[in-house]
Design a protein around this nucleic acid. Sequence first.
DNA 1: TTTGTGACGTATT
DNA 2: GAATACGCCACAA
Length: 138
Amino acid sequence: MRKLPDKSFPVATKKITEKPRVVMPDGSREISFFDQVYDVVRQIPKGRVTSYGAIARFLGSGKSARMVGWALNGASAIKPKVPAHRVVNSAGLLSGKAHFATPTLMEELLAKEKIKVLNEKIVDFDKKFWDPAAELAL
DNA sequence: TTTGTGACGTATT
DNA sequence: GAATACGCCACAA
């Protein structure tokens, strides 16, 4: 996946439920913002978590954390599994748990990875936090 | 086309 | 430190 977006960021993203990949104006194939999000999320080590904002910054958009969440909205429909449960907001809250198959699924998955969740919040979020910019160091 | 909404985040009050 | 305000940008209506 490499590559970072900035200006050459692909514009025409189709429905995320369809083909995430887009074609750049120059004809070169580029990875859509959504795919990049999925890639990063897939690389989150087991037992670690990250935030929407961290991913957004890593991808260059910075303030487009909402788009990360939006992308994850269709994560369940993506072929390779996307561990969306490892992505929370900057406060370490499971803001997206309601969007899983079941409201308890997210906690369950996190529990499997030895991540404790107390009152919708990740325990020791600071320690579990995984920064793509630092770890992937692209 | 314009408007509103959102798995967010940061700056103010 | 909690509550608000605002910025962001893709998408649906």
